[in-house]
Design a binder for these strands. Structure first.
Length: 112
DNA sequence: AGTGTGACACTGG
DNA sequence: TCCAGTGCCACAC
């Protein structure tokens, strides 16, 4: 990773690495980038990447698995639709079986 | 350069 | 996923 890349770009780069049918949290990405407390900034990065369809921002949720950012997507249920399209179950804006599909870059990218 | 902002995370009650 | 309050970081203006 180019260290000259902005935090936003890094966050978006990690988001692109999220496998199909998996999700991660803002905090996990922030931690992987070396700023565990910058989870909120990761949210900004995802919002900034809204116009960039190469970034699967819908696979990034908060730690509880809540689709807190769905309101920022085009349709009211677009984010949920995209996730369900990947086989992810969502009830009341929350991802079910989160522990099974959670993808932690800090672990997955380090254990290579 | 200071202030405001936010798609979070954590702690105390 | 207790709820409410607080701290945190990076970015835009």
């Amino acid at each position: 990773m180019s260290s000259d890349a902005n935090f936003f770009e890094k966050a978006q780069a990690v988001a692109r690495l999220i496998p199909f049918g998996r999700v991660t949290s803002y905090g996990a990405i922030a931690k992987y980038l070396g700023s565990a407390q910058a989870a909120r900034t990761v949210g900004w990065a995802m919002k900034a990447s809204s116009s960039d369809d190469t970034v699967p921002a819908h696979r990034v949720v908060n730690k509880k698995g809540l689709l807190t950012g769905k309101h920022h997507f085009q349709g009211t249920n677009l984010m949920q639709q995209l996730l369900e399209n990947e086989g992810i179950i969502i009830v009341d804006n929350q991802i079910q079986n989160l522990e099974k599909i959670f993808w932690d870059p800090t672990i997955e990218l380090m254990r290579k």
